[in-house]
Computed example of a mutant assay.
Amino acid sequence: MKKERVEAFTDAIVAIIMTIMVLEMKVPKAGTLTALLDERSYFFAYLISFFLIATTWYNHHYLFTYATWISKRAFWANCVWLFMMSLAPVATGWISEFPSSRTTAYFYLLVYILWGMAFRVLMVILIQDNPKKKERLGRMAGPKRSWLELSLLLVALVVTYFVPILCLVILGLNSVVWIINTPKGSDRILS
């Protein structure tokens, strides 16, 4: 399969997901700062979700730049990853509506974990399908980042039980880890 088709499809889905999330943001009911602050819960959840999506999209671009062949397995792994990401608007809206609920926080966390696992599976398949690019593709799954990410997720699982809204903060930190630890030169690659 031509990777350009998969990339175009992915870009469209990601754009739609981000658009849905911003459209879910409610306009304040009055022209006061208090009315604006009443929407802070959704804005905070949206902020974290937006950057989680933007970060994984950036890393997806890196992977697809170096992959020369997109197999049927890679296509379907990409679709599963997009499906998990498509649950982000629901998880974002739900946790913002009930920020003190363990259920909503654990649902948000579950969506993120499944989404992250789907991305890892996609990475592994792309590495297997493109053995000549293994070194470059493998840079995305560095051990330092993997251990830090796993540690943050384990902390989130525990902390969420006591202070549910902190799962957003921890996942925000996870996004920062991915932003900081992108492969060297990833901003200089040409398609």
Rank of each mutant, 00 (worst) to 15 (best):
K2H: 10
K3D: 02
R5C: 06
R5K: 14
E7H: 04
E7Y: 07
F9K: 07
I13R: 02
A15Y: 00
I16W: 01
I16K: 03
I17V: 15
T19L: 14
M21K: 03
V22C: 06
M25S: 05
M25V: 15
V27G: 05
V27C: 10
G31F: 15
L33T: 08
T34I: 09
Y42R: 15
F43W: 14
A45F: 00
Y46P: 14
I48P: 00
F50D: 01
F51I: 01
T56F: 09
T56W: 04
W57N: 00
Y58D: 12
H61V: 05
H61A: 04
Y62I: 13
Y62E: 12
Y62L: 11
L63P: 14
L63A: 12
F64E: 11
Y66D: 11
Y66K: 13
A67T: 09
T68G: 15
W69Q: 05
W69C: 06
K72A: 05
R73K: 14
R73D: 14
R73M: 13
A74D: 05
F75W: 12
W76V: 08
N78K: 03
N78G: 12
N78T: 09
V80F: 12
V80L: 14
F83M: 12
M84L: 10
M84S: 11
L87D: 03
P89E: 03
T92P: 08
I95T: 11
I95F: 09
E97D: 09
S100I: 03
T103I: 13
T103P: 03
T103N: 05
T103L: 15
A105R: 09
Y106F: 15
F107C: 14
F107N: 03
Y108N: 03
L109E: 08
V111T: 05
V111G: 09
Y112D: 01
Y112R: 02
Y112S: 00
L114F: 14
L114M: 13
W115I: 02
G116N: 07
A118R: 04
F119E: 07
V121G: 10
V121Q: 06
L122I: 03
M123H: 06
V124F: 02
V124S: 06
L126F: 03
Q128P: 06
D129M: 09
D129Y: 07
P131Q: 00
E135Q: 13
R136W: 04
L137K: 08
L137E: 12
R139L: 14
P143W: 14
P143A: 02
P143Y: 05
P143R: 02
K144A: 08
K144W: 01
E149H: 00
L150C: 02
L152W: 02
L154M: 11
L154C: 15
V155W: 01
A156S: 08
L157N: 07
V159A: 11
V159G: 06
T160E: 06
Y161C: 13
F162V: 10
V163R: 03
V163K: 07
V163G: 11
V163A: 15
V163T: 12
P164K: 12
P164F: 02
L166R: 15
L166K: 04
C167D: 06
C167V: 13
L168E: 10
L168R: 02
I170Y: 00
I170K: 00
G172F: 04
L173W: 00
N181K: 05
N181E: 09
N181Q: 10
K184R: 13
K184A: 08
K184D: 11
S186V: 06
D187W: 01
R188T: 12
